[in-house]
Design a protein around this nucleic acid. Structure first.
Lengths: 343, 343
DNA sequence: CTGAAAGCGCTAACAC
DNA sequence: GTGTTAGCGCTTTCAG
């Protein structure tokens, strides 16, 4: 056959193998009309014989679309974000696209680095869970026409773009009100670092729920900061050592809930000391298997990814209009820990 | 300035804006030597002014490398795989590469689809956790020079490629021996579907541990199949209803462990019926917070991703030699459930 | 229905 | 030091 080609076969190779012009191969590969079934069959045979595969880079160079979207999250290994990731992937798949994913590790520099690397590869669109608050670096990309959707957290000041958020304020309210209804008055809040949007929103929901119930806010019962177990442990121990310790606890995200559970398990061994009631923001697997079951405010992380991706692909399909802001509802799942009565 | 360019600015635009030749811009952008600091500064100014960003697709077309690797796993949302994913991402980052990730959903067709889509985008290399056993479709890609590493499961027959596995047989042995040492003789094994490599290996480890201890294998105590909770539940209930029910249980992966825990929690409410001892293959978050703590055989999912990625980048850097097969050790973490004595 | 030619944005190989 | 030229593999345009 004498068709030994070095490296990958190209359309040109297929064309000469099939005895047709390059453009005919292109037509067959792309399913364009205007090719006799017989010629098409010859071309397809040559494709199979040579193991030809279209070079997407060359195609992109010509057409401008990569059928790839970029996703920046905090950590692909975190259950909250990996669920979001999966949902984005499913929507992308339905639209014939792949997903480039990167972890920002809550570092604005890495977020920027990832976004620019994605843009350099000319992704069609981006879904960003921002780590930073300054997104000026996005402007040239936006001008160039890239579609961007923010998820879980809004873009920094000066940018108004499609955004999908959870109802953080409402969720935190829900949890706090639930504890108040249970008779608690000393409710602590352990949150993520206040530089994080969702942390601030949840703190706000907590504060307003207390205020609305006429319960004074005790600043000593509010601890926001890093997710280091040591930090959380120290804050919790400090609170529990107060003359009037909290009888209930609201934790600001899934990781904090788990850390708090560990601290409480270590500090209040089963029956001796009274365990504070606990409501955690964000559901997690096995919350039902711990005793007592962990009451949570569930956010729809898959919904976050799905809605953001749908919004993105709608924009990519040419839908214009003002940027949308969508809030996804949260719901309270009582499992026991949030129903513990005050002592 | 009259530099209004439609769409994204190109090197040509930058060149004319800076009053230099295209190649000079290329030199500056790529940090090549042979440019006066003054000219370089002029070019950089033009780049900033126009918001120029190198088109990676065009670069790829010329150079042949995308600085992108593909990762096919079963599910990006599964903690085992998302941890692996993160480890791959970190290694890729150190090598200046991005990661295209896709979920095969344990479907060989989807695995193939993803791999080919990645190849069409000319990823430099692939890390595959295979869903199928037939990888003939990979041959043209391998011939074209793509680097491939298999992780967690080996390639199908006929292919010998770099592979990183966990010591599944040894791990299952470890768990079974632990239960035997605890005095158990009726040990059940609930595994994943036997079409899955790791499931077969773990079953093998379980069987040989029993055989080595002179304990006869009772086929009624072995249940392998889907990960549907209903299937697992039915199998467990059947075993527990035997005249001589198992006093201990070895579960074949993290998801099965969780399902089994739920079934046992529902069926043996706290103090009434005696709980079988439990050892689970694969560690999971919160295993320590459940009462009793869940004894597991921990596999190093991050190590799997890290070692696979390091192997891949070593190949990409030009290291040749016969394909490597690496086995990562497992270790037993006793937490209570595996130390429950037989009744 | 099929084909020839131009060019997407960049880099490699040479000029100068 | 800097510029010119060719061409990566494909799609687009326009001729046959």
């Amino acid at each position: 056959m004498g068709e030994t080609v070095r490296g990958r076969p190209t359309m040109k190779d297929v064309a000469s193998a099939a005895g047709v012009a390059l453009k005919t191969v292109s037509r067959v590969v792309n399913g364009e009309p205007g090719v006799t079934p017989a010629t098409a069959a010859r071309v397809r045979a040559a494709i199979a014989r040579l193991g030809y595969r279209r070079n997407e880079s060359a195609r992109v160079l010509r057409r401008g679309r990569t059928a790839t979207v970029g996703l920046v999250i905090e950590d692909v290994a975190d259950p909250f974000y990996s669920t979001l990731n999966r949902a984005v992937e499913e929507v992308a798949r339905r639209h014939g696209s792949l997903v480039l994913t990167g972890s920002s590790a809550e570092d604005p520099g890495r977020e920027r680095e990832l976004v620019l690397a994605f843009c350099a590869r000319r992704v069609d669109g981006l879904i960003i869970v921002p780590a930073g608050e300054d997104h000026a670096y996005l402007q040239p990309e936006l001008d160039a026409g890239i579609a961007v959707v923010f998820a879980d957290r809004p873009p920094g000041p000066g940018l108004v773009l499609d955004t999908v958020l959870c109802d953080n304020v409402g969720g935190a309210r829900l949890g706090t009100e639930h504890l108040l209804r249970g008779g608690h008055r000393r409710i602590a809040f352990v949150g993520d670092h206040p530089s994080i949007f969702t942390a601030r929103e949840r703190e706000h929901g907590y504060r307003t729920a207390l205020a609305d119930a006429g319960v004074p806010v005790d600043e000593r019962l509010i601890a926001m900061g890093s997710l280091h177990p040591a930090r959380v442990r120290a804050d919790l121990l400090r609170m529990l050592a107060l003359p009037d310790p909290p009888t209930a606890l609201l934790t600001g995200n899934g990781r904090l809930t788990v850390i708090a559970l560990r601290v409480l398990a270590a500090e209040t061994p089963s029956t001796t000391a009274p365990r504070p009631a606990l409501v955690g923001f964000d559901d997690f697997e096995l919350a039902d298997l711990i005793r007592p079951g962990v009451t949570v405010i569930a956010q729809d992380s898959a919904g976050l990814g799905r809605v953001a991706a749908e919004l993105l692909f709608r924009r990519l399909s040419g839908v214009t209009g003002p940027p949308e802001l969508i809030r996804l509802p949260t719901r309270l799942i009582p499992r026991g820990s949030g129903e513990l009565p005050p002592p």
